[in-house]
Write a protein that binds this DNA or RNA. Sequence first.
DNA 1: TTGTTGCTGGACCATGTGGTCCGGTTCCTC
DNA 2: GAGGAACCGGACCACATGGTCCAGCAACAA
Lengths: 218, 218
Amino acid sequence: MSDEQVAAPRNGRRISQRGIATRERILDAANRLMLVRGVNATTLDDIREASQTSKSQLYHHFADKQELVRALVTYRGALVLQRERAGLERLRSFSGLVRWRNALVQANSLNNGKYGCGLGSMALELSDQDEQARSSLSETFAAWEKLISDGLHRMRDNGLLRRDADPEKLATGLMAALQGGYLLANAAHDVAPMEVALDMALEHIRSFLVQPADEPTR
Amino acid sequence: MSDEQVAAPRNGRRISQRGIATRERILDAANRLMLVRGVNATTLDDIREASQTSKSQLYHHFADKQELVRALVTYRGALVLQRERAGLERLRSFSGLVRWRNALVQANSLNNGKYGCGLGSMALELSDQDEQARSSLSETFAAWEKLISDGLHRMRDNGLLRRDADPEKLATGLMAALQGGYLLANAAHDVAPMEVALDMALEHIRSFLVQPADEPTR
DNA sequence: TTGTTGCTGGACCATGTGGTCCGGTTCCTC
DNA sequence: GAGGAACCGGACCACATGGTCCAGCAACAA
């Protein structure tokens, strides 16, 4: 997962190449550790060790743990949006949606449904604990949904979707199915529920196709 | 939320009425606190204070924090299933499903989408941290889905649903929409996404009705 | 009544964890 | 190359938090 330049440098301070690299290493380690253990269960010492840095570096680049977590929210959000943009910005057909679905399912099946969505898990853990993180995550979800709804808009404009299809609502429904699917798959340690959930949402979208192709969804 | 006898007494030990009451008080406090703060962010001292007990009582009734959490998983699961059973065991029509949806939405809207589902949030927080809790939660989800699918089976047997409707898959999809809806609503501090998600799932189920009544979903 | 066990209060302990400090090194600027 | 700021290593600190202990009271069986 290469991720150069995703992390924003600090506010009005001079910053060296080495500094950027260190900050990046910290965020990358935090990203990996907190995905599998959760935010609160990951200690700064864990991150320090995994990132081959020292305490002073952590506190040189971030004011405290909370700020590190907030930076991670931004970092992870940028990674997800970057990945999703690649898969969605040219979406113009129903089969494109199916390919997108398959990619997500396959990625998640690699670890038997474990860990879930990096954004969703943070959302549930932080929403009632850090208002700033919550609103940032909420914006990221909105941007993600917009990538989907933009694609659906294109499909509607091209006459693939009926006029009465509501791209925004369809995108929200699809996102909910995705997140709920992640959650159930994580609890079951099995991707199957995620597949069922996504298929339901795709089926719903398909019902708005002008010419409902009767190809299977996978 | 009355909840007598939901908590199981301890294994082969003599136990007094007073002991049961204390144990119940502890679980109830843990339930309330961990719903709003999350499991890991709630300390034993918080629980001790909120339940008007002492450290020794906590450790008299539970071996350690992990066991308390596991007991809470059971406790909360029983509460949810009890509540859901009341709302679902007589489900025989599509409008019954709509009423069920409305009840959930209304309950969640009381706190502007905050806190989410007691089971879902625990699932995401504990799944990668406590295998026993995870499998217990997974079973609870399965039981919950079964309440739904049983209702759908009844509808199919009564000729309301088409024969090609798959109650199990429909129930899983609905549950995913519900959980994803909770998650997005929590992140947005707004019930709207939860409504959209549930409506999508209901719409999907409605498409399997033999006589698709064109009443609105709410 | 008496013995045994459940139950409770609360002081106390061990340590994991977030956070500080300071001396030293690297890097940029003039 | 000299000054200063960014950067780094790691020892150190404060304290929150999970967990222990024990003395005493309540409850129940005989």
